[in-house]
Design a protein around this nucleic acid. Structure first.
Lengths: 153, 153
DNA sequence: CCAAGAAGCGTGCTTCGAGCACGCTAATCT
DNA sequence: AGATTAGCGTGCTCGAAGCACGCTTCTTGG
């Protein structure tokens, strides 16, 4: 127990990261959503849902993946009907990756399940603590230490 | 802004996960610590530091990796002098994975750098908010939704 | 006390994801 | 209008992850 919250938060985040990357958690969250949705492809769906239709290169920068990797994963999701490629009206070479209705439904379902998990574990908390935690976490993420841009290689 | 903190927390965690898995962040945290320490091998070091010397199978269960994968990564860290294999005094077949002094120093340096990042972004916060956030986050991680055991395949 | 089964570890082998280089099309600049 | 740059998709190569196998050692039942 130190006077600097940074160390405690760092430890907590380390544990959180380790736990949340467990395969079985992702399997539970995406259960029954089709073969194309797994721990590798979901970040694309989530990123598109957050930022709207984007080009493959932009989405790659957003989620820290190579452009070609995004293309390959998008192929799978497109075959599954969760994502479509629209030609960019402003640029004929560019194609915009966008969620289909089915894709949006998948994102909504997954986020709802995660929220349910979180709500369940917050059930024993005082309501005010839960709201405070939500508010502080949001602030931490907004102007937190992870907002830097990824450099190009 | 909904009445259910779960949805907000879910969104924040999604962003946090996406950001924190960026390669360049890990590169900054492990800069100058040797070639063997990267985003793949650091979880082993961190896990050993948290739980102490363990067998490869136990460590694999802890961090959600296959036993053989742990072995291969441990080989690299051992060659780099950050990890050693001690024979288990209670069981001649088992070998315990343990951090060397250099390995502990690497973990300490990395966690210190992460803590510094966090402290820097918390500098503009009221001190009480920072402490509250630290406390709530710790509680969330301790009895949060990610404490379940990984099922064996 | 010993024999058979179980548990732990390391290593060849296969599969699959990630990134680089290349070629193509279209936009932009001079 | 020609040249240069930007965006996209695809063959190709490298490396990581997990499975099957063999070896050693512990355990348990006769």
């Amino acid at each position: 127990m130190t006077n600097e919250p940074g160390h405690e938060i760092a430890d907590a985040l380390g544990v959180l990261l380790t736990r949340s990357t467990r395969e079985h958690l992702h399997a539970a969250l995406t259960e029954g959503l089709g073969e194309a949705v797994d721990a590798l492809t979901y970040p694309l769906l989530s990123g598109l849902d957050r930022a709207g239709a984007r080009s493959a290169a932009d989405l790659g920068r957003e989620i820290g993946l190579d452009r070609t990797t995004v293309t390959r994963r998008a192929d799978r999701l497109q075959r599954a009907g969760l994502l479509r490629r629209d030609p960019d009206p402003c640029d004929a070479r560019a194609t915009l990756l966008a969620l289909t209705d089915a894709g949006e439904a998948v994102v909504a379902t997954t986020r709802g399940r995660l929220a349910a998990h979180i709500d369940a574990s917050l059930a024993s908390w005082p309501a005010e603590d839960a709201r405070t935690f939500s508010r502080l976490l949001h602030r931490f993420v907004t102007d937190g230490p992870f907002t830097g841009e990824a450099p190009r290689h």
